[in-house]
């Protein structure tokens, strides 16, 4: 006790900060190591199965070469997923925005019931309906080889239900903006495009980013809708099939390499758009 009292504020702070730096260092290592390991594994060429060590005995690009070779469907999966992600990020953002804008800016009779119904619907586990969605899509011929448009529809159709975050943002925009525009004689459509939309850049980018990311990680729904078709398979379902007991010995390092390539576009996007993502996550949770 005596010692502590004799220390100055600055010294105290220095110790606290050193401690904080050590903690942060450890945290960073814990969080980043698995990815580093994953990258290392993707360069392992001496064997293709699961191993218990980190550093490959022999380094090489064989796994990446395999992914891009003719005997592997990886590029097809990757292309499919990219197309899906592209469409989904545009359409889903549009759908979510239509929903959240309406619920935030308009007051109409069915508004509250609509919000409550969506809340209740959200409480049902989504997997339950997978088999039904499959059959619905099958009726219109969008399963199997045509799974890509089918998946886009499934991802986009119900996306209105995820309106919370953007509604939270829109609620913070003052209503006087709309009123002023109305006085000037603008229609509601014009208000939407000319007044509101330009102010929504952060939340728009957040929505685009999250909806772009979604399809890359879906290995359940995508596999169900594609029903074994390589032409309709997405990258997550494809990579997941490599980890089945019968395939894992021959494909684990391929999986790692595939994982790295899948992570790249999303990480690059994140690098540039991190600011908006942070704004969206914070905004959504606090205001939503």
């Amino acid at each position: 006790m005596q010692e502590k009292h004799s220390m100055g504020m600055a010294a105290k702070r220095r110790i606290a900060n050193t401690f904080a730096y050590i903690m942060l260092g450890i945290i960073s290592i814990v969080w980043i190591l698995p990815f580093v390991f994953l990258v290392f594994q993707s360069f392992r060429v001496e064997s293709t199965g699961v191993v218990g060590y980190v550093f490959p005995h022999k380094w090489g690009l064989a796994n990446y070469v395999f992914l891009f070779s003719a005997e592997c469907n990886f590029l097809q999966w990757y292309f499919n997923t990219f197309i899906i992600a592209l469409f989904v990020c545009v359409l889903q953002t549009a759908m979510q925005f239509m929903m959240s804008y309406t619920l935030s800016r308009f007051r109409f009779k069915l508004r509250k019931p609509l919000m409550n119904i969506m809340l209740v619907l959200g409480m049902f586990p989504g997997f339950l309906t997978m088999i039904v969605l499959y059959q619905v899509l099958k009726t219109v011929g969008l399963t199997g080889d045509n799974a890509v448009p089918g998946l886009i529809i499934v991802y986009v159709a119900s996306s209105g239900m995820g309106y919370y975050v953007s509604k939270g943002f829109l609620d913070t925009l003052p209503k006087s903006l709309d009123e002023a525009a109305t006085v000037d004689g603008a229609t509601k459509l014009q208000i939407f495009f000319k007044v509101i939309l330009p102010l929504c850049k952060p939340i728009l980018i957040y929505t685009i980013l999250t909806s772009f990311m979604g399809p890359w990680g879906d290995f359940i729904f995508a596999a169900c809708i594609a029903l074994g078709s390589q032409t309709g398979m997405n990258v997550a379902a494809g990579l997941n099939s490599w980890l089945q007991p019968a395939n894992i010995s021959a494909n684990f390092t391929h999986f790692c390499a595939g994982g790295v390539i899948v992570a790249i576009p999303v990480m690059v996007l994140f690098m540039f758009l991190q600011k908006y993502y942070v704004e969206g996550v914070t905004g959504g949770a606090v205001k939503g």
Binding site: Y134, Q135, K138, C224, L227, S241, Q244, N247
Partner: peptide, 12 residues
């Protein structure tokens, strides 16, 4: 893969 074929067949 031969293990998964049945599940997929049963799905549709």
């Amino acid at each position: 893969d031969e293990g998964g074929a049945a599940s997929s067949m049963l799905q549709d």
